[in-house]
């Protein structure tokens, strides 16, 4: 029941390919068609070369721990059944970051720990990335 209340992402034409990719269990990142720089979260313009054109690239799926927190207080009714929950800020091989729930033992977390990206189907419409120990 709490899952039904979970806030849904409000997508735009700038971000839709990312969300569609997640449904197919692919973490799709924007790479600038002009200068080749990866960027995330998705947005219309490359801040390096100001090119609007992008390629959507599947992330390799490996990452490293940058930092983390353990959420104890939910702040929203949809997440009450999910706390406590470990949220990891991870650096992907492509250089951009991913914030996602960590499915592992929080006591093992140290900066630099190797992780893999996985996927969790929340509903027919929504799939979210997760992080697991490599």
């Amino acid at each position: 029941m709490s899952e039904a209340l979970r806030p849904q992402p409000r997508t735009s034409n700038d971000t839709l390919p990312h969300w569609q990719g997640l449904r197919d269990h692919r973490l799709r990142l924007q790479r600038c068609a002009g200068c080749g720089t990866f960027r995330h979260y998705p947005r219309p313009l490359c801040p390096q070369c100001h090119c609007f054109d992008v390629e959507w690239i599947d992330a390799a799926g490996d990452a490293q721990v940058h930092s983390w927190t353990v959420l104890h207080h939910a702040f929203h009714p949809a997440f009450r059944s999910l706390v406590p929950c470990v949220m990891v800020t991870a650096t992907l091989r492509e250089g951009v970051r991913l914030l996602a729930p960590f499915k592992g033992d929080v006591r093992h977390l140290v900066p630099g720990l190797a992780l893999r990206v996985g996927f969790e189907d929340i509903s027919a419409e929504l799939t979210l990335p997760v992080l697991v120990p490599a």
Binding site: P9, Y41, H66, L71, F75, H76, L128
Partner: peptide, 17 residues
């Protein structure tokens, strides 16, 4: 769009890392 669906959106949750 990207962090609220995961459950992280309040300042305490965003600043903790």
């Amino acid at each position: 769009e990207f962090e609220l669906p995961m459950g992280a959106f309040a300042p305490a949750q965003l600043y903790a890392p």
